[in-house]
Design a protein around this nucleic acid. Structure first.
Lengths: 146, 146
DNA sequence: AAATAATTGACAAATTTAGTAGGGTATTAT
DNA sequence: ATAATACCCTACTAAATTTGTCAATTATTT
């Protein structure tokens, strides 16, 4: 099964909520948790990663929460997924840390590499703003969305 | 991490070997195992699935093995992956058996659905024959393959 | 009959993912 | 100041999935 981790799914949904507070209203973890049905401690792990990646920033204290660290247009779904689950490698032999033993005579190496690139390209075309504005349908085209 | 299971990877590599015997030379599991570094028992699980799906057929007895059940042009990578890991659902909420509780107010549902369609479309354009003939580069385009 | 090779189903190890637990730290409102 | 809010961090556990093994059987050809 090719499956996106729930961590990434939660992350994208969290980013949606944070984007709703753009540009100046911090969104707290408990609020995101409630709206998106994500356990707070798990959510905090996710938000910490995104913060360290510079995608969001945080405000402490009462009334605090998380804010986008850039415009909703500039942050793509790929940015989020890459930080949470990356470095993305469709197959383990594409994992930069492991390398491919069979690379020279592997008939499929190129195929998987290309698949990964396709995925990246697609997710890079969708921004958080598209999510908020529901622009996805237009970008994707109706014939595929059915 | 978005990752393709090794089962599917093994399956595609196995199909490559079987395709090399096309149209009439059966390829045995031990031979595939040796050439592609896949444990025989695990390989047999995979081949059984593909046979039941009608993608390949088998010949028993000495000199027996597996044969494509169609032309290499007609079998796509998607066909293989779908049978081994399917029904593919990028996210669990797209799993037909589970369904999505949040579907009405889920801001990302459409996104994941579309991503799955993209993936399917891409893998459906690559045939087993492309693998054997090394046509992938041309189909994909050099700028992506880098 | 004997050798070869597919076929089957149950089982087990390993890995990854998902989620908990619990304490600590910074900030702001009162 | 102090209490409340909410972020921050490390380590651990549980669940699920993936990956692989084992043992026995069936079918076919030589």
């Amino acid at each position: 099964m090719i499956r996106l981790s729930t961590k990434s799914q939660y992350g994208v949904r969290a980013m949606y909520e944070i984007a709703c507070g753009y540009p100046d209203r911090p969104v707290s973890a408990p609020l995101i948790s409630e709206k998106q049905d994500v356990p707070v401690p798990f959510l905090e792990q996710i938000l910490t990663k995104l913060r360290k990646a510079g995608i969001i920033k945080s405000v402490k204290g009462p009334g605090g929460g998380y804010l986008l660290n850039g415009s909703p247009e500039s942050i793509t779904i790929w940015d989020i997924v890459e930080q949470l689950d990356g470095p993305m490698a469709i197959t383990s032999c594409l994992d930069p840390q492991k390398g491919c033993v069979r690379i020279d005579n592997c008939v499929t190496h190129l195929l998987w590499k290309s698949l990964g690139n396709h995925l990246k390209d697609f997710l890079s075309t969708i921004s958080v703003n598209d999510l908020v504005n529901g622009v996805i349908l237009e970008k994707i085209g109706l014939e595929k969305a059915g």
